[in-house]
Amino acid sequence: MGARIGVVTFPGSLDDRDALRAVGLAGAEPVSLWHADGDLHGVDAVILPGGFSYGDYLRAGAISRFSPVMDTLIGAAEGGLPVLGICNGFQILCESHLLPGAMIKNNHRTFICRDQVLSVENTSTAWTNAFTKGQRITVPLKNQDGQYVADERTLDELEAEGRVVFRYRDWNPNGSRRDIAGVTNAAGNVVGLMPHPEHATEPGFGPDTADGSRAGVDGLGFFTSVLTALIH
């Protein structure tokens, strides 16, 4: 029996289906989880997908944070369960205080959708062990509230502890402090980022690369990483 990886659907989630498909492409069993169900159904890891849960009302992720599934997931994550938050999922993890900082509107005030170059700064997390340190990857980025902010002391701590997992390269698309695209908790089991690795996991549907149109599969490493982490 292989690893079972859950993907939570909230009202307004958009990328849950792509995340489930990415899990399957990586060789694990995808399991749909529901926001109103506080039971994680014995999954080995959880992905909070992108979208606009609750219409981003109040603040992005603020209402989802108090859903029944999050009540259970917060304790499980503190106990070591691997959790990946993508885009809206990252916002929910920040609102839950599982990850430090918060997201505000992009500094240019417009929605952005592009293929984005990132560097992988920390390869010891549950979701990044398939990469090499400093490796550049290209995955889609699409958001309105993507500007990562935290106070200077928190940012200094994140830098000192190696908890900045991804940085935007070539161009900072939203004004995020110190080009931060993703961070981890101290234990390395909870990771959040604004770009979308699940949209770069299948040839023909990913970003353009030198190998061909839509050939990019740089995101697949996220989902194979957690399988490695679960074995060890």
Partner: peptide, 14 residues
């Protein structure tokens, strides 16, 4: 209110 040290993109647009 947004904290004073936080950029307020909506306020800037207004």
């Amino acid at each position: 209110m947004p904290k004073p040290e936080i950029l307020d993109p909506q306020g800037k647009a207004v």
